[in-house]
């Protein structure tokens, strides 16, 4: 078979810049930390050959993973990551669903404009959007300032430096990711079905709940995954909006790497994060496959 450059060039590129780095992370996760530059001693040497590798796999250094289990900090970070990402995803869903529904029901000639309005913030810097929330939500920020001068509150609301801030931050940054797949499903629905349900005795709300909502499961799942997956590994949101006590894997990984310079442990955390993501991604994969066959 002829080797086509159009295949070969991207293939080699991806192998070098995607596959190889992942392999290195995996290798490092089983290595030992060292006070050196680079600060680790590899377990596997590329020159060893597979028989030596096999030996070493048997005596594999699981020390990094053991450390993760011994130190409750890491387990906590994983649990609270999942919890915060899930809560953030739920909040996004609650805001995005009515929004996507309203756009899908808007007059046809306005829909594209409204959709563009939702997507444009996605193009402006993520960092700046998070920064905008800092300005709003700090104890001396605008929200508290406004509420106080209106006399609605005495003490500032705890909107910053805690779990709530992270959840709102996730909702704010990932809203378009949820709106788009929901809109895509809603837009295809036949609205006369809601009319039919109302004709058969259902109120507006019941008609939505029994007829429209069950038909949008696929969009909901796609949106949830599109938000949950990146939110789980999020670093900027917990770092800038969360307090010093809020733990998320991304943040812990960052501080192990840059702060403690424990590269192997950081790699082990990364491997765990990847394993954690494997499940939702597999779900997404199955969903996509099913969509293709239907």
């Amino acid at each position: 078979m002829r080797v086509r450059p159009v295949i070969l060039v991207p293939f080699l590129w991806l192998a070098l810049f995607f596959l190889a780095p992942l392999a290195i992370v995996l290798r490092l996760a089983f290595s030992e930390s060292a006070q050196a530059r680079p600060p680790y001693r590899p377990v596997f040497a590329w020159a060893d050959g597979w028989q030596v590798w096999l030996e070493k796999v048997k005596a594999l250094g699981l020390s990094n993973f053991e450390a993760m289990l011994d130190e409750p900090l890491y387990a906590d970070a994983f649990f609270s990551s999942v919890g915060l990402a899930a809560a953030g995803t739920l909040l996004v869903l609650l805001i995005a669903y009515p929004l996507a529904y309203a756009i899908a029901r808007a007059p046809r000639d306005r829909r594209l404009f409204l959709l563009t309005l939702i997507v444009v913030p996605f193009w402006t810097s993520f960092l700046i959007r998070i920064y905008a929330w800092i300005a709003l939500s700090k104890p001396e920020g605008l929200i508290n300032h406004a509420l106080k001068s209106l006399g609605l509150i005495d003490a500032p609301l705890p909107l910053f430096g805690n779990h709530l801030a992270i959840i709102i931050g996730i909702a704010y940054s990932y809203l378009p990711f949820m709106v788009l797949p929901l809109y895509a499903t809603l837009e295809k629905l036949d609205w006369s079905l809601e009319d039919a349900a109302r004709d058969l005795g259902a109120t507006r709300l019941r008609a939505f709940w029994r007829v429209t909502f069950p038909q949008t499961w696929r969009g909901i799942i796609a949106g949830v995954l599109l938000v949950f997956v990146p939110a789980l590994g999020e670093f900027i949101v917990p770092d800038l909006l969360g307090g010093s006590d809020t733990l998320m894997i991304g943040k812990v990984l960052w501080s192990e790497f840059f702060g403690n310079r424990d590269w192997p442990l950081a790699s082990a955390l990364a491997v765990m994060l990847l394993l954690l993501l494997a499940l939702p991604l597999a779900v997404l994969r199955v969903l996509e496959d099913r969509r293709e066959t239907v």
Partner: peptide, 10 residues
Amino acid sequence: NMMFQNYALF
């Protein structure tokens, strides 16, 4: 009750 044009079956 109404029978819709494209039947509007759920």
